[in-house]
Amino acid sequence: MSFRENGLMYALGSLVVGFVILQAVVFLIKAWRRGREIGISVETLKNAVVQSSLFSLGPGLSFSATLLMLSVSMGLVLPWIRLSIIGNIVYETTAAETALNAYGVQTGLAAPVADPVAFAAILWVMTLGCILSLVIIPIFLKKIQKKMGSTLQKRDNKWADAMSAAAFIGIISAFIGRALAGQGNMKMAVPGAGLMSVAALLSSVGVMIFLEQLGERKNSRFLQNFAMPISMYFALVLVVVLAQVLPENIAFFEFRGRV
């Protein structure tokens, strides 16, 4: 069996995945208990779990695209590990490519990595390239939180609200901007803005506005809580249907092509 998918790799993968899930369970229990202590209702806590789970299912499934893409060169286990711990497509592909280049492997991610030493180099680069946050958080997070907390307390609530909304809107803008005007990348299999991305974006926006207003009008707690995941899944089903019914050159047209 290949060194990329042998028993040792599966054991290491299980260790990483087990660790990540265990940490999440421990934090979930701790926060749940504290929530009950400070008077948050079980229903509110349950809603947070259900809503976040539904919200994560779609993007979680979309990781399969990254998993399959990286598995060609690295086997299944390493992408599985990397997507479970500090993983994302841009980081993983960049790290793997630079490690392979440094090792003189010219095929990049297009062919299986046959040399265990080059594979080991990828593992080290991927690991060392993303551990800085794990080093600085235990040392500096308490200070950052204290500083930010005291800054916010000196100001009024309106600025505190506006500040968190503005930071998050900045994040949303980046992804919406890419869906409207981004260019695709052939090598990293990153899609560009096109009919599909605009259809997904606009249908999700439309359904969300409709459901929010319906929820407010009917005073439906369910709609108010689950409008977001419903809108997201509607958009995902829509693009699958569009891809089936539209001619391929129209359905997969990207405004700016791919580099």
């Binding site: 779609g58 993007p59 499934l61 998050f168 869906a179 599909m196 991305s197 249908s203 997201m232 693009v239």
Partner: peptide
Amino acid sequence: APALDNALPALFGALGASYF
């Protein structure tokens, strides 16, 4: 593939609608 490729526009469309 279209759903897997467009999970982010779908997710941020819903979020954006609410926040904007």
